[in-house]
Amino acid sequence: MARVELQAVRKSFGTVDVIHGIDLDLASGEFVVFVGPSGCGKSTLLRMIAGLEDISGGELRIGGEKMNDVLPAKRGCAMVFQSYALYPHMTVRENMAFGLEQARLSKREIEERVTQSARMLQIDHLMDRKPKALSGGQRQRVAIGRAISRQPRVFLFDEPLSNLDAALRVDTRIEIAALHHRLHDTTMIYVTHDQVEAMTLADRIVVLNAGKVEQVGTPMDLYERPASRFVASFIGSPRMNLIEGATAEAMGAACVGIRPEHLHVAQDGPWAGKVVMAEALGSDTFLHVETAEAGRVVVRIPPGETPTPGTALHLAPDAARLHRFGADGAPLA
């Protein structure tokens, strides 16, 4: 039930600017993912919304109220940390109740809320354990449960899945998606460097680079219409092939991008090359091909017979799916 607005928000540490004036308008109940490479300022931005970092300039509004100088606990945000940050000397129940005690809720209400959120996350059988007796996944659930029980208007996640192993990460990701569905009026802001998490969870993605917003849009928007060369190479796995030099200039651009699935092996293709490496993943096969015209590119082909390294072949790009970028990295129409 809270819209989050950022207007020209800036952050500097001494003379170093890390966030250069960010404008964002996040709708109430929206799931927004901040994504970007390490050091792009995404975590700092999240911590500024939470109140753990001061805002050097600009304005932050949550639910229409200016929050720049409001104490973290009074902003109506709850945060889930990458390292869980549970209180190690308290049981799961005490961990979840701590924030509510600080808010001076009645014993009954605390009990009610804790039980409710524990049930929601299926941790009600762990209530009397200490964090050290829990597995990584359980700890993360407790951390989420602690955040839920505060019934925040805005839910902040700071790379919550980075410390989990691969299988658990997928499960927890799905649970977070389900959680958002259930708490549909709670605005959620999620920071990650993992673009799969961003693509699967987000209503909208905010791509950050070097303290600036590169693009804001739905996952498919970013994938299909990247607003810059940076976004084009950052979103999508494997990365979009970026081709520079004579081939790009022939198409009237400084750089041309084509995704691996939009390149095809074809007898009459314009780009001739040799397979350097083939990665068969089962559902897909990725060929790394060294070409004279386009340099080294990755091609996605359907599973089946895998060409051995050294095989000569021709590639044809899907002309409608080419992305052309100017020298400044901006897309050309």
């Binding site: 109140g51 973290p72 606990a73 190690p88």
Partner: peptide
Amino acid sequence: EIEEAAIMDGASALTIIWRVFLPL
């Protein structure tokens, strides 16, 4: 992060020292 979690939970500096740090 433990301290930051406590700040998010609304604990004052003294509460953080008393309830979070002292036991540790």
